[in-house]
Design a protein around this nucleic acid. Structure first.
Length: 347
DNA sequence: AACACGGGGAA
DNA sequence: TTCCCAGTGTT
């Protein structure tokens, strides 16, 4: 850090703003300071690439255009609009937070950082982003982009997997913070996404390369430093696809494990259904922290009597392919249903 | 402080 | 394969 004079720090933020003015990405939530829309987009794009979440964001805003609409909707429909996005507690929390805003703030989105922070699913990053973008709050919205950009500018080897990284890089951000923090925060996202990328950063196009210590040392690839390794565990699941005449059985998951509140097939069946097992298919599904192996037993119940008896004795929901589109399933189960649909149409 | 939580895209 | 993305909640 000794190679950069203190007087240079302030101009870095302003140079970034100048670059952003010309190179900002054209995104649907860039033309607004509506706190509802900014809040939703911040939640949608947590740990999610823009291209991956863009359709979800647009569909979500179209169906739930304001806090009141969202608060008065059913949780299952909110989850339906979240289908395929992952991290489903975000959808559950976003729904609860909308009701919080209706109940605790009379439907008016809170302006203060400390109040925004009280909303379910809103942490320090999101509170800072909404506060700065919508209400001129002077708080850096420190995310993965901040870690990467700042660690390179200052050639700082502070471990970003350390719990104190957020505090550490917040203080670093304050060194270069310009007046317009809202634009600054968004500019850091665009720079981190388009220029200062994790792999193969475009340093020759970077507006800050003259201020970047890592670049001047030719050590950009050494930053950020991250020591913590995420281990993927194996998880074996077993499901029974119990069906008859195009109908099949499902139930809703709890909110205490993966796929919170999503729908799934029965994880077990009683003795009388075992003779109807026709085949079994193993589906491998890779998640960030888990390697799933899902055994799905195809149980075609030829007997109407057994079918009705089993339904009467259990709490399972009877559905079909068409109706199941109104429910949110984990990705591998959704794929299975689609394959079943294709096969069933051929029959 | 450490861990759990989805899914997809890039290298 | 491995990494990582506009992070937060729980223990």
């Amino acid at each position: 850090m000794e190679k950069i004079e203190n007087s240079d720090f302030k101009q870095i933020g302003n140079k970034l703003l100048s670059w952003y003015k010309e190179n900002a990405r054209d995104l649907p939530f860039r033309q607004t300071k509506n706190p509802y829309k900014i809040w939703i987009c911040e939640i949608v794009f947590q740990q999610t690439r823009i291209n991956q979440g863009l359709n979800h964001y647009n569909n979500f805003i179209k169906r739930f255009p304001d806090v009141k609409t969202l608060a008065e909707s059913l949780e299952d429909e909110v989850l339906l609009y979240w289908k395929g996005l992952g991290y489903y507690s975000r959808a559950i929390n976003i729904h609860k937070a909308a009701q919080q805003i209706m109940n605790d703030y009379h439907g008016a989105f809170p302006h203060e950082y400390d109040e925004i922070l009280k909303l379910k699913g809103v942490g320090k990053y999101t509170a800072a982003a909404v506060s700065s973008i919508c209400f001129d709050g002077k708080i850096p919205a420190v995310d993965g982009n901040f870690y990467r950009v700042l660690s390179r500018i200052f050639a700082d080897d502070f471990d970003i997997s350390n719990s104190r990284a957020f505090i550490y890089f917040s203080e670093l951000a304050h060194l270069i913070l310009p007046e317009n923090v809202g634009d600054f925060n968004q500019a850091m996202m665009d720079l981190g996404s388009e220029i200062c990328k994790p792999k193969n950063p475009l340093c020759h196009e970077c507006p800050l390369n003259k201020n970047c210590l890592a670049f001047s040392l030719n050590k950009v690839s050494e930053f950020p430093v991250k020591t913590k390794k995420v281990k993927a565990n194996d998880l074996d699941l077993k499901y029974y696809f119990v069906h008859r005449n195009g109908e099949f059985l499902i139930q809703q998951r709890k909110d205490d494990f993966i796929w919170k509140k999503l729908f799934e097939f029965p994880p077990e069946i009683s003795e009388e259904l075992i003779p109807f097992i026709k085949s079994v298919k193993t589906v491998n599904h890779k998640l960030t922290h888990k390697n799933l192996s899902i055994e799905i037993f195809n149980v075609e119940v030829d007997s109407e009597e057994v079918w009705k008896d089993f339904i009467a004795k259990n709490d399972f929901i009877v559905t079909n392919v068409e109706d199941s589109h109104e429910k949110s399933f984990p990705k591998p189960l959704e794929n299975y249903i689609e394959n079943y649909h294709t096969a069933y149409r051929i029959l």
